[in-house]
């Protein structure tokens, strides 16, 4: 990392503030892009090569990558592939002076936010980076929700898990009672307990949670 800025305003937040990772071998591009994004109140970290980025990247850090294609060593496209193969879904904006149609198509298929050609309008760069950060935030929020759900699910007893998949499958209390050889009243008790435990207001919501948690 050649340069890192961290305004104090974000320091008290428990979740780290989003950061833009600039990966470009051209020092002038790194410096100018960093300066411009910082002027727009954004945090940046700059890397001169793909390898340097990979060595220091922490997946828990929110943000996005502004990535050059042409670099000595690993190219931008190779870095993108490596990240995706490793399951990292951090949003990537390609900013290159060396683009052509085939590489644009290949990188779009790898799920980049946009493919910008140098020299790009600075407003376009800002807008695209902001979009990438929003996507990252949404993605992380979803991820957090999911993790929360999985955590709640992990607290259920084996009997409760059995019950929730049956409810999600649309079975009635009577059917479930018969299948589990318990009374209908027992099933209803369990159901009320489940709704409270998973903070759901009705069975439909409970079914949706079960599907998202993979129990459907």
């Amino acid at each position: 990392m050649t340069n890192t800025t961290s305004p104090t305003s974000h320091a008290e937040s428990t979740v780290p503030a989003p950061r833009i990772f600039i990966v470009d071998d051209d020092p002038a591009i790194r410096k100018s892009l960093g300066m411009m994004l910082q002027a727009h109140g954004l945090l940046t970290s700059e890397f001169a090569s793909a390898d340097e980025f990979l060595a220091k990247y922490d997946t828990s850090q929110p943000g996005c990558i502004v990535l050059d294609l042409r670099m000595p060593g690993m190219t931008g496209e190779e870095l993108l592939k490596t990240l995706r193969q490793g399951g990292a879904e951090i949003p990537v904006v390609i900013l290159t002076g060396h683009g052509d149609v085939p590489v644009a198509v290949r990188t779009m298929k790898l799920g980049i936010v946009d493919f910008l050609q140098k020299p790009a309008e600075h407003q376009t760069v800002i807008d695209t980076v902001q979009l990438a950060l929003r996507k990252d935030a949404e993605r992380r929020l979803e991820e957090a929700e999911h993790q929360k759900l999985l955590k709640r699910m992990s607290r259920l007893t084996p009997r409760e898990r059995e019950l929730i998949s049956m409810l999600a499958a649309g079975k009635t209390s009577k059917e479930i009672a018969s299948a589990l050889t318990v009374s209908v009243k027992t099933v209803d008790n369990h159901r009320a307990h489940l709704l409270a435990k998973l903070d759901a207001s009705n069975v439909a919501e409970l079914a949706a949670l079960a599907v998202r948690a993979g129990l459907g």
Binding site: A39, K118, A120, I126
Partner: peptide
């Protein structure tokens, strides 16, 4: 395009 891009960025920052 490299220096032009850098110039555009510096102007954007300023």
């Amino acid at each position: 395009n490299q220096p032009l891009s850098a110039i555009s960025n510096f102007v954007g920052a300023a």
